[in-house]
Design a protein around this nucleic acid. Structure first.
Lengths: 244, 244
DNA sequence: ATTGATTGTTTTGTCGACAATCTTATATAC
DNA sequence: GTATATAAGATTGTCGACAAAACAATCAAT
């Protein structure tokens, strides 16, 4: 199943593998749609019509359909039978579940990692944190967000469990959508200082402290959101007209 | 599901699918292949040819292809470009990752649950454990395995996080394949007694104890396997000729 | 006898067209 | 004026056929 998960967005260790022939390979199409969603050009809830996409990318509809299936698998779009695909629009409940799941997975990862970081891996992580510091000094917010997410993926890669890594990838992309819906995007969510502290706890082999730090670190992001307001247009008419 | 006809061929769909086009909604096809894999009628590594399946189920190849994609997404089959689908055959590394991931997820679930089980849910769980006890008394091993897996799913459902539930579902089905490859199937893997102890720790709100019990419980399964022998034919020729 | 190339067969990948379904607009009755 | 029924349009679901790739077997050459 390990088709190289073509999320062109969060490629951590590797360079892009795209063969640029016309931009028609379905990995390329996937990457473009993914990027468009991440860039908020395609707001959550937007309907993605097959024929429209077919014209845009100049490929057959079957191709588009396959890409949609992959996007649905990644949790980025929702496919309803006979109604097509639309950009995933998380409910508050789903949002909370995504955060909770991510806390669980990343907690597992730091526990897997505690006291077991090699020399080369440590160097990589330190280098990454240095990049984060530099980006903050530059006030390059966009880069900060990118690096911030990449740090977590990096930890997962070093932990060496490809399944957890895949789960985390999915959760991170979906969390990005959640943030898009329930908060203004762009503001840096993770501080490099917290990353530093987590790394130190891991190096010290203090699994419980590393777990606690990671959970708090991730909890900070969730607390900044307003999950109590459902931004979707579905209205509870019964409640609305109850008092009249 | 235990029904197996003696044809050495990959006879999956037993019921008549003839002209009645309704015989093959793709959910049904998915379920049948899934069951066939779980029942070891389709051993790991078996190639699943599209046209063969098309004939068996009497549907178009596109349908089969879609089902294969879903099976690949669930981790049950592997799809290689231009080489088609085959039943997932875990390497020892993948097997270990599956176990580790499952320990992580289920640990998260019991922590989510600790001290937060409602009355109705407790009744359901107790009833389930009673079923396990009854099955053991009956020496109904097949039922024991089924109930045993169901207990874990039940916990995940009660925890109320659909994402973690989905992850766990995938891991459990894949773990079943691992057990199939690296151990004789059928022997009960979980004892109801351990389930009982885990539940008590959860009820007591003792998260760390519940986590430890769950991890040990799951570790017992892994220890029974022989993961050091790679059953696949790939041989490390470099190592083989290193000492000559 | 083994290696290498070539050809024929099998299997997967892709596409365009048709059928089924949903959505929207219009007309009609009350 | 509102609501239902009907029809037209648009969109997705499905299928069969063709093209490309991988596989297997045969044959030639060293």
């Amino acid at each position: 199943m390990a088709r190289k998960d073509g999320t062109g967005d969060v490629e951590v260790g590797a360079d892009a593998q795209g063969d640029e022939h016309g931009g028609g390979t379905d990995d390329a199409i996937y990457a473009k749609i993914h990027a468009a969603i991440a860039a908020q050009d395609l707001p959550p809830g937007t309907r993605l019509r097959e024929d429209e996409m077919r014209q845009i990318f100049g490929v057959s509809r079957a191709r588009i359909r396959k890409v949609f299936a992959r996007l649905a698998y990644a949790g980025l779009v929702t496919i309803e039978p006979n109604k097509g695909a639309s950009v995933f629009q998380p409910t508050p409940k789903e949002a909370r579940e995504i955060f909770a799941a991510r806390r669980g997975i990343e907690g597992t990862i730091v526990r897997l990692l505690a006291g077991r970081i090699g020399k080369a891996e440590l160097a990589t992580l330190n280098r990454h944190i240095a990049l984060e510091v530099a980006a903050e000094a530059r006030r390059d917010w966009h880069e900060m967000v990118r690096l911030s997410g990449e740090f977590h993926l990096l930890l997962a890669e070093i932990a060496g469990n490809d399944i957890l890594l895949r789960f985390l990838r999915e959760l991170i992309t979906r969390e990005a959508l959640v943030i898009l819906v329930y908060e203004k995007p762009g503001q840096p969510s993770c501080s490099h200082h917290e990353h530093q502290m987590i790394l130190e706890a891991i190096l010290a082999g203090d699994a419980v402290r590393a777990t606690a730090l990671m959970e708090e670190h991730l909890g900070n992001v969730e607390e900044r959101l307003d999950l109590d307001r459902d931004t979707r247009k579905s209205v509870d008419l019964g409640r609305l007209f109850a008092g009249r």
